[in-house]
């Protein structure tokens, strides 16, 4: 290999001389280059090849001479680096216990004995928590499930090891049978008919009410009669919802903020304050 390199180098030197010479010639004959014959083209390509090879050699340096030397140097460097890494690791986790093993490290060193296991285990089993969190305002035993007032749960729902099952919220919907509708639907029975209109005062369609076509026709007819008679609203869009027995007048309390229905509680607490 060394021999071949030396030969190549000498050849290159010769060629480079030649190429330089040729290049000079070429610069001189640059004007006539356009009318060059095939032979000269060939030579030019040859020259360019040689010169590029030379360029490569120049860039990647003096490999032939110092190849083995540099190799050995790099190997040495590698070795030192490795040793440093290991010693660094060792010093990190074992506080220099392994510094004496620097050379014979490969057999005794493995990832099981570097003390990382314990740390990982500790990190995996510990989580940060607040021992006083129960007393906090926003504490929830199951923050991933919202238990609405009025809903029920069993012990299975409280098992924190299982993911929370989100139960679909069912409003206490109004359900009737067609027979009941046919018996009760009357434009004077506003309390009953109010179940068949939406918040905006629109008649609920049949695939929501799930009653027969006959019953739905009757309900719609009676609602429309009641509307014409003034007992039910045509629309409550933009106003408050129609609730049976409540006036549709704009009252001041409609524009107040929602307050909890704690009148008696508030009164009780106020009495001692007042008295």
């Amino acid at each position: 290999m060394k021999l071949i390199r030396g030969v190549l180098r000498s050849v290159n030197v010769g060629l480079s001389y030649q190429s330089q010479h040729l290049q000079i010639i070429r610069t001189f004959s640059a004007n006539t280059a356009q009318v060059d014959d095939e032979g000269q083209n060939d030579r030019q390509s040859m020259n360019s090849f040689e010169s590029s090879d030379d360029f490569e050699r120049r860039i990647f340096g003096d490999i032939p001479g110092s190849g083995s030397k540099s190799n050995s140097f790099y190997q040495k460097l590698d070795r030192i680096e490795k040793a440093h890494d290991r010693s660094g690791l060792g010093s990190k986790f074992n506080f220099g216990k392994r510094s004496e093993f620097l050379d014979g490290l490969d057999e005794s060193f493995n990832t099981l004995s570097d003390g990382m296991d314990g740390k990982l285990k500790k990190a995996a089993t510990y989580f940060e928590y607040d021992p006083e969190e129960i007393a906090k305002d926003d504490y929830a035993f199951r923050p991933d499930v919202t238990f609405r007032p009025g809903t029920t749960y069993d012990t299975k729902d409280l098992d924190l090891k299982k993911p929370g099952v989100r139960k679909p919220f069912r409003r206490n919907e109004f359900e009737v049978t067609s027979e009941e509708v046919l018996k009760k639907a009357d434009f004077r029975n506003v309390r009953f008919l109010a179940n068949f209109i939406t918040e905006a005062g629109i008649i609920i369609k049949r695939n929501k009410t799930k009653i027969s076509a006959k019953a739905q026709r009757k309900v719609a007819r009676e609602i429309k009669t009641a509307r014409a008679f003034g007992l039910m609203p045509f629309t409550t869009m933009g106003t408050k919802q129609f609730i049976f027995g409540k006036t549709m007048e704009d009252l001041d309390e409609d524009y107040e903020y929602d307050t909890y229905d704690t009148r008696s509680f508030v009164d009780d607490s106020r009495d001692p304050l007042g008295g």
Partner: peptide, 11 residues
């Protein structure tokens, strides 16, 4: 007589 009733809208 049904007495006084609340209306669905202001007449």
């Amino acid at each position: 007589s049904f007495g006084t009733v609340q209306l669905g809208y202001g007449i």
